[in-house]
Amino acid sequence: MVVGHFLKWLDTARVAERAAAAAALARAYVQNELPFEDRCAAEAALTLLLDDPSAKVRLAMAEALSMSRHAPMQVVSVLASDQPEVAGVVLARSPLLTDADLIDRVACGLPATQKLIADRPLVSMAVSAAIAEVGEPEACAALLANSGADIASLSFRRMAERHGDLALVREALIADPRLPSDCRHVLLVKVGEALKRAPLVAALMGASRAERVMREACIKASLTLIDGTRAEEHAALVEHLRLRGDLTSGFLVRTIAYGKVDFFGAALVALTGQAESRVRSLLAGGKDVALTALFRSAGLSAATHGVILTALKVWREVANGKRLAGAQEVSWLMLQQLGDTSAERDLAGLLKSLHVEALRDNARRHALAIAAA
């Protein structure tokens, strides 16, 4: 029997010869070139070769077996647990490794091993979840760059929470079109926190002013984020902001002043528990009494009711083609509704700042348009 001669020859062969012979035997096995008896003997020989003291021999076997569905499972399993140089070939390619096998190696593997698994042509949602939960930054970045990886929304969130302050992962997350909007908000907050902690910022502004500037920048960025968020993702973003404590009356006043009516409606649905269809109907054409009751149910302060109603009426007219207006005009009209109570004075300060922001934005766009003409 050919395999019998091969096993006797192993004792005297040099490493290079054993590696070449092991690769040839492995290729013959996976290509089904051997009769049944020789095939059984070849499988036994390949199993024996797992004990070869030279990593070069085991690597030659791994390269020959790694891409085949016909490789002996026990041989592939042992090679996948070999030293990184050998195991990497199998972990990166073998179709015989189950999700459970890969998850075990993600959980206890080296960063290089995790990255190899993240780079596999197809990565299941379960394996992606394991990498998101315990993977090193390099592995998470590789997973995000892999178009063959199936990644759940929760896994995106875990990577944003764990590694969002690292540029390598943050940039990979932002570049991924599948990234949910609430994860984008997590990342912009992390960027703001990183800037706030920067020694230069702290030295120039002081801690309290840096905190205030960071908070205001994050609020503005959140409004911009809403524009790029699909309507079906509004509920998830609302829930994320609510859990963070960012879904305040002031924030909702900002959203309606800037015409984010769909998002405002999603927030009211979450805060009141009422049906989405009813909330949409009220925002589109509801009476002031019904809308005020809705705002009260959502926990919005009484001082905000009148200004929100004013903004809604303007945006309705804009939607119906009866009026041309933007945030500059709406914030000014909202401001005109306020009196001189303490709560209204606080709200007036917010609306004045919104109005000034809108004026500056419009002036900047006008200047740029003139320069481009």
Rank of each mutant, 00 (worst) to 15 (best):
M159W: 12
R230W: 08
V307I: 04
L333F: 14
V201M: 08
S94F: 10
G326R: 07
F36T: 13
R105K: 12
L188R: 08
D340K: 09
A231K: 15
L96W: 07
L144F: 02
R157S: 05
T310D: 02
L195W: 00
S94D: 11
R58A: 06
E193N: 01
A107H: 05
L166D: 06
S181V: 09
L173P: 00
L252Y: 01
E216G: 03
L187K: 00
S301M: 06
T255F: 03
R197M: 02
S281T: 00
A112N: 00
E33H: 04
R93A: 14
A202M: 04
G206Q: 01
G259Y: 09
V253H: 04
L96F: 07
L79E: 11
L200N: 13
I117T: 02
L173F: 00
K220H: 10
G349V: 04
E136V: 14
N32Q: 06
S147D: 10
A13T: 11
E239G: 11
P121V: 06
E138A: 09
R296V: 11
R69A: 03
R158L: 08
A203V: 08
A202Q: 12
P199H: 05
A207E: 13
A210R: 02
A23D: 04
L359W: 07
T255P: 06
L96T: 09
L144M: 07
A358W: 07
H305P: 04
A257K: 14
G273D: 03
T113D: 12
M334R: 09
G285D: 08
V89P: 13
A172F: 00
M67C: 13
A267E: 11
R157K: 12
T292S: 06
V330E: 05
R14T: 12
A194W: 01
V307W: 01
P95F: 02
E344T: 12
A41P: 07
G339K: 09
S68F: 04
M1N: 02
L143Y: 01
K115N: 13
R365F: 03
I151A: 09
L48R: 07
I226V: 13
R280K: 05
A139Y: 01
R18E: 11
K260Q: 03
T310S: 01
R280P: 01
D99I: 10
H5F: 13
A160Y: 03
S208F: 15
S124T: 13
R27Q: 05
A319V: 11
K8I: 10
S153D: 14
A373T: 14
A19I: 06
A327Y: 02
T292E: 05
F36V: 15
T310V: 03
A298Q: 11
